[in-house]
Amino acid sequence: MSAAAIEKAADELMANYADCIDDGRFDDWLELFTEDASYKVVARDNHDRGLPATMVLCTNKNMIRDRIAALLGATKYNFHYDRHVVGQLRVRPRSDDEWELRASYAVFQTSDEGRSSLFSVGRYDDRIRRQGDRLLFCAKTVVVDTFAIPGMLATPL
């Protein structure tokens, strides 16, 4: 794949990722991860200081599945819609079939009564891998600037 083709495919993957969350299609969202994928949500100040604690830590896809199962079947949280706005992607090769992917994001939450507010800004520090003819996330790290979380963090960022 050419650099341009990778960038286009990465762009498509990230757009899919955001759409799946914003549409509440979590089964489809799970399909964007490799079986060994990690998913982490990290506060920017802990990250910058090298402190290891995270807000969400899934070290394999089964743990990501469990997060979604809890979201849909156990935990209680505010009724809301999510809206992701993802900035310019930067893609850098790591190996023949893996790339680093970095982008800024903003997530707005809208209550079920239609009131919107900025919920989270930060960046994605991801790794993506070519698997067959698809690109998938093999490591997703969300570094959260808004680490004083408004209320609770239920839906993946």
Partner: peptide
């Protein structure tokens, strides 16, 4: 054990599987 404590941090805090509800209940 450190890794296990970090894993169980999933249970607590704003995204905690056994604590996020407290925020919603209070609100």
């Amino acid at each position: 054990l450190t890794h296990h404590r970090l894993l169980q941090a999933n249970l607590v805090g704003a995204a905690g599987l056994v604590s996020m509800e407290d925020a919603e209940a209070i609100e």
